[in-house]
Design a protein around this nucleic acid. Sequence first.
DNA 1: ATCATATATACTCAAATCGAGTATAATAGG
DNA 2: CCTATTATACTCGATTTGAGTATATATGAT
Lengths: 316, 316
Amino acid sequence: MATPTGKQSEEASGHAVAADLIAVLVAVTAGQPRFMTIQNGSTLPSGPFAQNDRSLQSGLRTWVEQQTAHPLGYVEQLYTFADRDRATNGIRVISISYLALTRESREGNGESGWRDWYSYFPWEDHRSGPPQCYKDIVARLLDWTKTATAPAQRRVRSRRVTVSFGLDGRPWNEELILQRYELLYEAALVAEAPHVRQRGSSARPVPGQSMSFDHRRILATGIARLRAKIKYRPVVFELMPPSFTLLQLQRTVEALAGKLVHKQNFRRLIEQQDLVEETGAMAADTGGRPAKLFRFRRDVVDERAVVGTKLPLTRA
Amino acid sequence: MATPTGKQSEEASGHAVAADLIAVLVAVTAGQPRFMTIQNGSTLPSGPFAQNDRSLQSGLRTWVEQQTAHPLGYVEQLYTFADRDRATNGIRVISISYLALTRESREGNGESGWRDWYSYFPWEDHRSGPPQCYKDIVARLLDWTKTATAPAQRRVRSRRVTVSFGLDGRPWNEELILQRYELLYEAALVAEAPHVRQRGSSARPVPGQSMSFDHRRILATGIARLRAKIKYRPVVFELMPPSFTLLQLQRTVEALAGKLVHKQNFRRLIEQQDLVEETGAMAADTGGRPAKLFRFRRDVVDERAVVGTKLPLTRA
DNA sequence: ATCATATATACTCAAATCGAGTATAATAGG
DNA sequence: CCTATTATACTCGATTTGAGTATATATGAT
């Protein structure tokens, strides 16, 4: 029978679930992308959605601010999922994850603290070329592709590795961070993988700190979203101080994307979009010629509505 | 205290909520964009998420296929929300909405059926220029901007109308459909608005069929997502038959976007991206010179990974 | 004072892409 | 065989992009 939303609440009590809110809270400090953790870096801030919360977002704010003593700035929803294995006491848990952007201020309280996200994903930082661990990871993944029994499956695996890690002259695509993490998970090369202890020599995980539950996967989802979004929406500015130089802005973009951009073209793009204006002041501590300070023109954003930023990251 | 995901399930039983799954199921038939409804067009297909569903998506599939006798094809999550006023029996309802793409086959059973989405959003179809109702809607919105008491609020409203409806020489941006619906809602110009009956002459809603609950808003969210997504991911093809002419493809894109594109440039863009290949056959029923039939190259998509489609819709 | 070094900022230039056409081909119907 | 209609090839100027070069203004060492 057709049951419209809202009407089935009477019967829905038989389908009760618990709702969990999880935050990927990001800041960029001194050119390093960081995120908020609790429990000594093993867990993302999270908590149950309570009956009396006004909305999902306000529930999230309450919990995160309580756990981390840090107010949330820009917030957007990431993804909602209901894992089979998340059930406890026979009740299913639905997790609603959020991406939040701020600037790092005071330290967290107690066990909460900011962590560099590249210590969880060392293979994702290509700002000074492919990192140390990259070559080894690719080799181990290629080994894994060969362990498939069916030839068709070998081809599928091989193509996935080739594409997502930018082999055979393909470009490195920073947005594929989730696909790369999922490959490593399937290949049992991260500590979170369920069968990681069933395997032999290859059971040693690749470099990179692991997390509880699927939190590293959620973090990858957040990074992927952010890496995609900075290309078409002016969200980088949420991570910047009130005034900044163009190089600081560029370093922030590079920190998030995990790769470098052409300086002169970056400036051209930012300036011709009218997203920033000079404050009149100069930054003297640049180590070279002093740089003009700029501020974000928030008015232009709602002026042009959602219509966004361009960054020199779009092409291969 | 820090409470990681999963651990608080014991206490979470005190925070029990009901989860509801809602689908915006889209097809394009004969150049018209349509979506699946139940209850004579007033409601989106939806139902509770059950304990024994494998995942949210599979729960959704079960419900929709039961209600509409129509299998789901491509599915992606839209948004999750927990409205204050959605509570019944003291239990909060969390709604998880999905966008799904298919092709129209058989009719729905009973009360379910496909509806043209522009009969719910008549002001959104600009394929033959601004539609009939457009001028009147803008006029009524501009009247509404004047009813604000504070001058600052008048300016804010005025800019929102100007930007989202493309006034003062600004371009019409089809992606702003949700912003436009929200303006009409705030201005009490749609039947769903809570204060629609408290107002005088302007209580008459603008043209366009209304829906139960916030379903028209969810539909707008789905359309907005689809209009944005066709520009950078090859999702249009989910709506196409196995083989099609380039004009059919173009008409589908135009139906979704609600505006026309330059034919020659459209072809150039599609062909140079290698997203399609000739089947060898020709379509004779074109009304003019027969057209080559093409098929979507699914292999190219996972070859190039997420890296997407371009459509001549990107610029103003 | 001068020089190496670092950063800031202006400007150039060729290649690629895009918007908006024109021109020509192949069908159906009168 | 003329007209209407659609398909498809090709052109051309304007813009945008990638990848530089050139020059300006700081600091710190000698």
